[in-house]
């Protein structure tokens, strides 16, 4: 009977119309389709806000397309001065705005906080003759064309990181032989199968293969060594590059300072809550929380750095 009841409750949760008791309403835009990273972040945020009673009725809307720039444009045009609207986004959006030459940029929204982040890892198959980051850089310097890098889409975090590595190693960034793959699985298969020289992506993508002894980590893009990762940082390997693929949340343009402060304090409460911490643990997201003006400053530097490297790779004119 208890089981039946549990199941029935599950169905009710799924099928019943939830009647809101309106106290504080909030809408969160995920500028991506259901299921992806930004969508999961938005829905996790929704769950934490409601469970911790920080807001009573939170709606998530999905506006997919063009690396989040379509959602961003819609968010800015529809929510000017509204204190009850948030948009989720991340480092990928910084690149997408630049490569797509998007008319609406992150300057037009109000930074609230950076929530989570992931560092990039550079890997080779275990059977590869390349043993260290030094070996890879030596080959890159000798003949950049022979080093094929497998990673995500052109102009994305992976591509930007390769550009930064080339630049730091004194190699012309326009000469890198970067091979973009559309899905994580396809790239990973090509890397494990030895179809490309090296692979680059968020460390989480590689973790299982590394543990199983199929891939070797040459370096990670974090400021310090990562716990549970057997590999040096890029800086230790003599490459002065640090990249974090982060996700954060912004509010609408033209909100008052009080409204902004209250939103920041709400997200700070979320970050401190058990619900959110549990979510981070189950999803394997690292907490790189940074709120308000500190986030805004970091964001500004990131945009400048990214613009420079994308111009050098030749993706932005």
């Amino acid at each position: 009977m208890r089981v039946l009841f549990k199941a029935a409750a599950g169905i009710l949760l799924a099928a019943a119309a939830v009647l809101p008791v309106s106290a504080q309403e909030l809408s969160i835009m995920a500028p991506a389709g259901p299921g992806g990273g930004w969508d999961q972040t938005a829905r996790s945020l929704q769950n934490a806000l409601q469970t911790e009673k920080l807001a009573t009725n939170v709606q998530v809307t999905n506006v997919p397309g063009a690396g989040g720039t379509i959602g961003l444009a819609q968010f800015v045009s529809q929510n000017k001065g509204k204190a009850d609207a948030l948009i989720v986004g991340g480092y990928v959006m910084v690149g997408a705005i630049l490569t797509n030459n998007a008319p609406v940029t992150l300057d037009q929204v109000t930074p609230i906080a950076r929530l989570t982040g992931e560092y990039e890892a550079i890997v080779v198959p275990t059977s590869s003759p390349i043993k260290t980051m030094g070996d890879l850089v030596a080959q890159l310097k000798a003949d950049p064309g022979t080093v094929s890098w497998g990673g995500g889409s052109a102009g994305g975090t992976d591509h930007i990181t390769v550009g930064l590595i080339a630049k730091a190693a004194g190699v012309d960034p326009t000469k890198i032989n970067y091979i973009p793959f559309s899905g994580g699985g396809e790239a990973l298969a090509a890397i494990v199968g030895g179809k490309v020289t090296a692979g680059i992506s968020g460390y989480g993508e590689f973790e299982q293969q590394v543990k199983a002894g199929k891939l070797r980590v040459l370096a990670v893009s974090s400021p310090e060594r990562l716990p549970n990762v057997d590999g040096p940082t890029l800086k230790e390997s003599g490459i002065d590059v640090e990249v974090q693929n982060w996700r954060g949340v912004w509010a609408a343009p033209d909100i008052t300072d009080e409204q902004k402060a209250s939103l920041i304090s709400m997200i700070e409460k979320v970050n401190a809550s058990k619900t959110w911490q549990d979510t981070l643990a189950t999803k394997g997201w690292a907490n790189t929380f940074l709120a308000g003006d500190a986030f805004a400053d970091v964001l500004k530097q990131e945009i400048e750095k990214t613009t420079a490297v994308l111009k050098e790779i030749g993706l932005v004119k």
């Binding site: 064309g145 052109a154 326009t174 000469k175 890198i176 032989n177 790779i313 030749g314 993706l315 004119k317």
Partner: peptide
């Protein structure tokens, strides 16, 4: 289409 990206 004007690509300045290295095309191997």
């Amino acid at each position: 289409i004007s690509s300045t990206v290295a095309s191997y």
